[in-house]
Design a protein around this nucleic acid. Structure first.
Length: 250
DNA sequence: GGAGTCTGTCATGCA
DNA sequence: TATGCATGACAGACT
């Protein structure tokens, strides 16, 4: 549903359908006159065409853009899930608000449609905003939003090293490839000696990382099995039969 | 802030 | 000689 994940061509049509169906449900709840989705869609198109006559200036858009990100602005008064306001939850930049920028020579309707599609529908449907740190055109989520929990313990920096040194493969790929594939990569003449050394180190660390994990698993299993043996020998005194009980007839 | 835990890294030995 | 695996020791990040 987000600009970073979908293609423009089906984005608007899908969301327009959601919008149509949603308004249909609301009309049903209120007991108002319900339009068939196809009729509603046609009506929207007609309205879109009429609204398109009203073009906006770049000043108008600059003001609107400022309002979107401004604390206390009209849009900011809406509160999204987790009690995060729009100004807290979304940071609009020249890169991520490309759809908005496209309206500079466009129309006010597209602006409102943009707001409806990208902001209000996620709020209404209780969908968390997407967070993509490496996206160029994504809406950036910030405070108060759910994030993937960081793994415990020391974190490997080999992925960053691989990227920073412009290695042709990721750290994971380097450590998981076969020896033959590794030699092919190392034969690459475009790689510097430093890059080749780094590839060997990353591979060694990657292999050792996995080995350390399995080693710990085995150690844990050994400890558990020895503990189990020890507890099996700790039989309660009351459970031990006396010699008289074992051989009552003697 | 300190203790406990988890996990990555290094050194070393062996195959 | 190069490489992978196993393991102990240590260190950093997290609970």
């Amino acid at each position: 549903l987000y600009p970073s994940e979908f293609h423009f061509s089906y984005f608007f049509f899908d969301l327009e359908l959601i919008d149509v169906l949603w308004r249909n449900d609301i009309a049903a709840e209120k007991g108002a006159r319900q339009l068939q989705p196809a009729d509603q869609y046609e009506l929207d198109l007609q309205l879109l065409t009429e609204k398109s006559i009203h073009a906006v200036s770049s000043e108008d858009l600059a003001e609107l853009l400022e309002d979107v990100s401004k604390e206390g602005g009209q849009l900011d008064r809406l509160t999204c899930v987790n009690n995060v306001s729009l100004s807290e939850g979304i940071v609009f930049t020249a890169q991520n608000s490309w759809m908005l920028i496209h309206t500079i020579d466009g129309h006010i309707w597209w602006y409102s449609f943009f707001v409806w599609c990208t902001l209000l529908i996620p709020l209404v449907l209780n969908i968390p905003f997407a967070s993509r740190s490496n996206g160029d055109n994504a809406i950036t989520a910030t405070a108060g939003l759910p994030s993937v929990p960081r793994r415990r313990g020391r974190q490997s920096k080999d992925e960053q090293l691989a990227a920073a040194n412009r290695l042709p493969l990721s750290a994971r790929e380097i450590s998981e490839m076969t020896l033959g594939e590794l030699h092919k990569v190392l034969k690459n003449e475009s790689l510097t000696e430093h890059q080749k050394q780094l590839i060997r180190k990353i591979r060694r660390r990657g292999k050792n990382k996995v080995a350390a994990r399995t080693c710990r698993e085995r150690r844990g299993e050994r400890q558990r099995s020895t503990n189990a043996v020890e507890t099996s020998w700790n039989v309660p005194v009351s459970a031990v039969l006396s010699l008289d009980q074992l051989v009552p007839t003697l």
